[in-house]
Design a protein around this nucleic acid. Structure first.
Lengths: 202, 202
DNA sequence: GCGCAGACCGAACACGCGTTCGGCAGGAGG
DNA sequence: CCTCCTGCCGAACGCGTGTTCGGTCTGCGC
């Protein structure tokens, strides 16, 4: 179990350093120091720098997809599922900002066997969004149109999560409802509550 | 004038290489090679790598802001101004994809005297968007709400411009109208033409 | 006690990087 | 003809990097 704890600590350190500095600025020496290990000691657990990136990326995407599917399973309607996706995404972004940065910024830097693996998980995430929008669609949009709308939505979410715009006063719950309202009804309308009665307190 | 041509070529080369590889992966040697100069020859024109980044960034932001202000000046209503902003942004993204990447990805890497300078130009751009949304607002939104809506909108745009999702079939004009419609009226509504009669052919 | 295996480390290697230095061509001015 | 200046280059310096090698501990089976 001690080895597993070490491994876990290494992944945490790598996520933090890789997220804060970016893949190419982050040095393996810095990750080792953050994990309370020597440089060569870190190499005892990990084959190289790209494996470190892969491990962090893989774990983060598993967490994100897991959170999402758990939230989706509890949402009965398409509207609540959309809200659940937005909420999960923003929540993850606020709770694991470094992991989010790595997902959005550094995943292309992996080399080929592994790159496809995380690309598949990224695509699975997009598919969840696309499925929800397909349910929500009332105008018979084509797959291409739905896909670009999905990318628009995810772009909005990443635009928020990227930098701390309004993190000061707002909490992710309210923010998610606001984003959902804007996406569903547009900027010109204003309907505060997206889901008419679907709120449950925790 | 030959010196000006050289300078221009250097900026083009730097924009291309910096955009494609990112600041820290791009080497000055590669930029020099792309500009048909030797390594030391490049240093004859430029003080260092960060100055290269600054020059590219500054020129790109000037172009973007210039394009935007020119398009805004011709747009009579708030709706057409919104459409103009979206169009300009997407157009710039399609025409100068490398410059767009640098603007969105690498500007934070500048060191302090210059960083503030490009931050100011970036903020000026956001202010244009915020002003348009303020005109468009029918619900007395607060400055914070308008700012976050602006960031949502810009996030959507960058989400598209980032990767070639649908570049195959769509052209920026149609795409811009689609984005504007989705932003103004929401996903649930569908109004094809955002601006009822404001189209002029070129 | 003995040996072995695994956790861990200090020191080095090879390499690519940003930057600098000394110099070479060639045209202009005296 | 000499000199200066500008555009440009080959070669090097110093440094930080990812990675590896040889070794030292410590604990456990026999």
């Amino acid at each position: 179990m001690a080895i597993a704890a070490r491994y876990h600590g290494i992944l945490e350190a790598a996520e933090d350093v890789l997220g804060r500095r970016g893949y190419h600025q982050a040095s393996i020496r810095e990750i080792a120091r953050a994990a309370n290990l020597s440089l060569a000691g870190l190499y005892h657990y990990v084959r190289g720098k790209d494996e470190l990136l892969f491990l962090v990326l893989d774990r983060a995407l598993d967490t994100l997809l897991g959170d999402l599917d758990r939230a989706l399973a509890e949402a009965p309607t398409a509207e609540t599922r959309l809200l659940a996706l937005i909420r999960t995404h923003l929540d993850f972004g606020f709770r694991h900002p470094q992991a989010m940065k790595i997902i959005n910024r550094d995943w292309e830097l992996l080399d080929e066997p592994r790159r496809s693996e995380v690309a598949a998980k990224r695509q699975a995430y997009v598919q969840r969004g696309l499925g929800i929008l397909r349910e929500l669609d009332r105008h018979g949009r084509s797959g291409d149109e739905l896909l670009s709308a999905t990318n628009l939505l995810l772009g909005m979410l990443n635009g928020i999560a990227r930098r701390p715009f309004l993190r000061s006063s707002e909490d992710p719950r309210d923010l998610a409802a606001e984003v959902a309202a804007l996406f569903l009804y547009g900027f010109l309308e204003r309907s505060r509550a997206v889901v008419p009665g679907g709120e449950h307190d925790d």
